[in-house]
């Protein structure tokens, strides 16, 4: 029993040790943090389901260097995002902006939610209205069964 408890305690201890973060490549941890923050918001265009932070495609490495260079040169996060959007379009953003072309994207879920709610309420209402009343014969039968 004690052994089992010890085993599980050990298991918990090993699980709760977090993996060590990869050491930043450059010597400025604040800058690296900003680069990583931006890179995780941006899509790698070569492997489209990865962020620039995750991807090791040569272009992603280049773009990360580009981001680092620009931030080092005093550019803001906004500036860097604008730089990439003018070259690659809104597609690089993992958070698409709200524009006429993206209205369906942003509004779609709410439309479907409203549609679902309407259907739900209509169904509930129709059920309530159609709750069957017992006929006289059925009442008699029920009474007989209950005796």
């Amino acid at each position: 029993m004690v052994r089992l408890a010890l085993f599980f305690t050990c298991l918990l201890v090993t699980v709760s040790i977090p993996a060590k973060e990869a050491a930043p490549a450059a010597d400025d941890p604040v800058l690296e943090k900003r680069v990583a923050g931006l890179a995780s918001e941006l899509r790698c265009l070569v492997c489209q389901n990865q962020t620039l932070a995750d991807s090791n495609a040569p272009l992603a490495v280049d773009l990360r260097n580009q981001i680092r260079e620009q931030l080092k040169g005093g550019a803001s996060e906004r500036d860097v995002i604008d730089f990439l959007v003018t070259r690659y379009g809104d597609f690089v953003l993992y958070r698409p902006p709200l524009k006429p072309t993206t209205l369906a994207l942003w509004g779609g879920p709410f439309v479907f939610l409203a549609l679902g709610l309407v259907l739900l309420f209509r169904r509930i209402a129709s059920r309530r209205g159609a709750a069957p009343e017992l006929s006289a014969a059925e009442r008699e039968r029920a009474a007989k069964l209950l005796e």
Binding site: L45, V46, P58, L59, D62, L63, Q66, R87, Y88, G89
Partner: peptide, 13 residues
């Protein structure tokens, strides 16, 4: 060689 201008042209493949 560095692919710098290609970035300006939005080249990714």
């Amino acid at each position: 060689g560095a692919g710098r201008i290609a970035i300006d042209y939005g080249v990714y493949g």
